[in-house]
């Protein structure tokens, strides 16, 4: 099967700045794919390369097998949901949604009918006569989604789609986007700097750092088996333990990651650590601990007794939860 989007050695350099540097990537058809990374890591540039707003300075991009080099955005069957939605302020919501059909010459009755259907899909029926300025952020986001989906793109690109929404709305939209993607079967590629969002929504995640993909895989792989300290640090706030400390803890003398929830507070026979800070998070309590000069985080599930700040406790973990990494940063 041809990949929906394929990067082969694709680069985008701005003079000496390597925004995207020799990226290889395959996104399968119908996949919900996340590009995760800190700001400036090249993920948004990758999205813009797929949309056609930027041209690669090296390598190639194929969209459903067809080379995308020199193809302008308006000739690509790819649509984008912009970070700040980019709704046309001088048009009604219905005209915004129908815009893609209008410029393709679809007759008025058909395009308005389809735009109304798209608004229904994003649960905003009857909002067509309003202006973008009259909607809330969450509603504008849905309009942007409807405006992209009405064109029936083969790939939908979402640039930090939930970045501007508050937590509650974000969680709700996460679920809705996922449901929508399943039911439509369109390939979704979304960019985010929020690892929780990437892990919970995507089928596959590519972690970006400094213009390169440092690891790609399913959310579980990325979370449980980070290949580098960067990934372990960035995804899931793992404890990254240096080789010397690892040796003192009785493990191999290599870089290792240990997830906070894998650490249990035991009575004896573990690693002694002093509680520095205790943060109550509701379902868990997050502890910052000092184990012989090594700073560790641990999660104590609700219901278990939480040690006091200043107390010395014993930390226990099973060897299978320890994940050794290449010592490369």
């Amino acid at each position: 099967m041809t990949a929906a989007v394929e990067f082969s050695n694709t680069s985008r350099h701005y003079g000496p700045v390597r925004a995207v540097d020799a990226v290889n990537l395959e996104v399968a058809e119908g996949e919900f794919f996340a590009m995760l990374g800190p700001s400036g890591s090249g993920k948004t540039t990758c999205l813009r390369l797929i949309a056609g707003f930027e041209q690669p300075t090296g390598g190639e991009i194929r969209i459903f097998g067809e080379p995308a080099g020199g193809v302008p955005p308006y000739k690509r069957n790819v649509n984008t949901v912009f970070q700040d939605y980019a709704l046309f302020p001088h048009m009604s919501i219905l005209d915004n949604v129908a815009y893609g059909l209008m410029v393709k010459g679809v007759d008025k009755a058909t395009r308005l009918r389809e735009a109304e259907a798209a608004l229904e899909l994003v649960k905003l029926p009857g909002y067509g006569s309003r202006r973008p300025g009259q909607l809330s952020g969450g509603q504008r986001q849905r309009v942007a989604l409807a405006r992209a989906l009405v064109n029936k793109p083969r790939v939908l690109l979402l640039d930090e789609p939930l970045g501007a929404l508050d937590l509650k709305l974000r969680e709700q939209m996460q679920e809705e986007l996922k449901t929508l993607q399943r039911s439509l079967g369109i390939t979704f590629i979304f960019v985010t700097h929020d690892q929780g969002e990437a892990l919970s929504m995507a089928d596959r995640v590519a972690v970006f750092n400094q213009g390169r993909i440092v690891q790609a895989g399913t959310p579980e792989e990325i979370y449980k088996r980070p290949q580098s300290r960067f990934v372990a640090d960035f995804v899931g706030s793992s404890n990254v333990i240096a080789p010397e400390a690892m040796a003192r803890f009785g493990g191999e003398k290599r870089w290792a990651s240990l997830r906070p929830e894998a650490i249990r507070i035991g009575a004896e026979g573990g690693v002694a650590a002093k509680v520095l800070v205790s943060n109550f998070l509701g379902s868990t309590t997050r502890l910052s601990l000092d184990a012989d000069g090594v700073k560790l985080h641990a999660m104590v599930p609700a219901g278990l007794s939480v040690p006091q700040v200043g107390e010395t406790v014993q930390l226990v973990w099973s060897a299978s939860d320890l994940h050794y990494m290449d010592d490369a940063a």
Partner: peptide
């Protein structure tokens, strides 16, 4: 960009 993206 959005207009171009939508096919204009």
């Amino acid at each position: 960009e959005a207009a171009g993206d939508l096919g204009a």
